[in-house]
Design a protein around this nucleic acid. Sequence first.
RNA 1: GCCCUCGUGGUGGAAUUGGUAGACACAAAGGACUUAAAAUCCUUGCCGCUUGCGGAGUGCCGGUUCGAGUCCGGCCGAGGGCACCA
Length: 851
Amino acid sequence: MHLEKFNPSVVDKKWQEYWDKNKVFQASKSKDKPKYYCLEMFPYPSGKIHMGHVRNYTLGDVIANYKRLRGFNVLHPMGWDSFGMPAENAAMQKKLHPKDWTLNNIETMKSQLKLLGFSIDWDREISTCNDDYYKHQQKFFLDLLKKGLVYKKESLVNWDPVDNTVLANEQVIDGKGWRSGAQVIQKKLSQWFFKITAFADDLDASLNTLNEWPEKVKIMQKNWIGKSVGCELNFEIKDDNKKITVFTTRPDTIFGASFIALAVDHPLSKKYENDEKYLDFKEACYKTGNTDEAIAKTEKLGFKTDFEVLHPFIKDKTLPVFFSNFVLMEYGTGAIFGCPAHDQRDLDFANKYKLEVTPVILPKDQKASDFKIENEAYTGDGKIINSDFLNNFSVKEGKAKVIKEIEKNKFGTAKTTFRLRDWGISRQRYWGCPIPVMYDEKGEAIPVPENELPVKLPEDINFDKPGNPLDQHPNWKKVKCSKTGKELIRETDTLDTFVDSSWYFLRFCSSNNSKEGFSIDDAKYWMPVDQYIGGVEHAILHLLYSRFFTRAITKDTNLEIKEPFKGLFTQGMVCHKTFKNEKGEWVFPEDVIEENGKYFDKNSKETIKVGPSESMSKSKKNVVDPQTVINLYGADAVRWFVLSDSPPERDIQWSDEGISGSYKFIQKIWTISEMIQNIEEKNKLNDEEISQSEKLINKLVKEITYNIENFHFNVAVAKFYEFLNFLSKKLHENKSEKILFKKMFKEFLVLIYPFTPHIASECWEKNYGNKEIHISAWPAYDEKLIKEDKINIVIQINGKKRALLDAEPDQSEEKIFNECLEVENVKNFVSGKNIIKKIYVKNKLVNIVIK
RNA sequence: GCCCUCGUGGUGGAAUUGGUAGACACAAAGGACUUAAAAUCCUUGCCGCUUGCGGAGUGCCGGUUCGAGUCCGGCCGAGGGCACCA
């Protein structure tokens, strides 16, 4: 019998065209069926799709296909997060207009996604850089302004004094600008903020309702929001009637306080504004950078002032006051008290400036006389010591007690605060959504009237001059007020691109609605997203911003939505070996060949050093182009590979062996399909053969269902291998009447369709004569048919496996024990010893404890 | 530095609630078929002893338990995030 090989390049195309033409994956407009909203994080159109995209969208596609087969009306859309910095960089480097560069990339990437056969409803495609998307966003901005959730304040940015431009954190390398190499300084600009802190308590509390989110993401968000009860505490300045207000979350350590640290631009700095030493210090602080990481890592510096403050609870005790580089005016009150014994940062500072270190918390199991703090602060719980009225309390009790005392004496007030800061949304860049605001001659902000939206980006811009092209534009920012006729100036800052991605999931519900961002009817039906899938790198910012923005824009409307994402799944990255040539330059894997375990450059024949497997990135060149692989092996093999072996939440290693293994498996499905098509099934099966067939297929249905529901796609893959290997073996035995091949294979095809839809559809059509596998029903299974009539019971002696017992299920404990004691090896162990305990786990295990 | 996660054979990994560690796959070695190759199929796969059995064993050290890859404490290593990359 001659079998034709499966040819993916022909078959993939055939089905992709069929699905497209018949709009098979279009979400139904009618809202009578139960809905399922499956969403993967939309891509930034950076050029071509990468393996990370392939993995992300394959995971989502399995779910979308599966839910369709289970009878849901599935919304599985795709769009483009198409505003952002890389487009501006491309504009400067390649002299391309950001819009042309972006639209080009979208076209390429869309065609690549189509090659993978994803079941996407392309009629709902959106792109955030289109004004029919961002005009709604501008409306939301104005809504939020009305609701009092937007405001302006001064804040620091990374300023490159040579390029005269604001730099992103990633563009600052070792404190220097990435292009100019100039020392970056902190500059104050007046910027727009969303008042995310107004929702801090709710964002924190309702994490508990998200029971389909990974625990680790919820913990990260909780820590990020950082709700803590503390207090504001006033320190009187000696010989002055002013006071310094500090905020602290550790008022219980007040008796260990040994200094006060102020932000360099704290109001008290006025006294030093002509002091050259202070000004030098201030400049040095401004070089530190304003990321948490930079502040945590740089050496703690202080500038001692002449101020001294009085300790509120210790008579005549005074504390020195420093300006410092680790306290920022933007957080809290811009002032803290330092308790070196119980805060590492304070301890480093105290050791540097030779300040007192008084321990006030004694760890459990330690004697006060032995307890010393040298280079490591103690931040744990314990018993309070050296603290007057707080002695012997725990940290928690001490906090409550001291706050009471502080309030009683009017030294300060209890305060719940959050680590979370308001969301700065102003960006001094061109390729983003314009902020719909104008300014009059006094600098007063005037919202753009809604009927004048959208404020469109001008297209005639150039990047030759440094700075924001919108600001440089000859006339774009000049505008006449439609009410007063006054000359006004447009806001030239654009919105942070995180705003674009904070509501796109709502837009998908009503993507063709030109009047509003989304309609309440649509959102009522489709929201929340049932399953959201994306990279864990978005665990905090994107997800938290989306949770906030959804709350903010639906607040006080007829449909208040709190949580946009019911289920969340965070996938791992795609990794690949790294290659370097003799000069230490990165080399693309496709240019490397292997001979006898050694690696060479295909072109130059240089020896290649193989590095560890790392997350695929363009800079390290350890990337594999999905399109090349699809051309070679077909869409199903690529999909199968990214689902195989590694669990979806973990990193996956790309390997050439792996993909060719997947290709072989796809071919094997085809071979078996052809064989089954050609066998004649005789109706001669006896009861046992039928029940064996039923058992196997029911078991497969159960296992695949369970593993899809629980995102164990790699295990589902293993179960498919097992099952197909079994079919193959039976077919090769050449006794076709042994099992129900046709029935079993038919169910197998439905089960595997979500994973590899092209070959499943093709085999289905060939064997069963129609194209409709995509509307067949997910098979059910019967627990009764799966049940084994013989089971293996493990016999342990003192917790170690010593024998197995073949037994009927559900027997009495006593009977099982007696049978165990008859087993040869058990006899050997037990003889001459006393049995002191017997444990029985039903139908599973017996443990006999002997002595 | 801070927060979070992960660590199992030569490799990727499985083990659903604390109950047979290594399913399934890749690689390797041997074999079958073939003039040959490819493809396909079969076998093997830690250490010790003659099929069976015993021992060690899930990054390291310790604990809880009849029983720990799984729970707890400490350490080591890798990865993600740290508010203007997306």
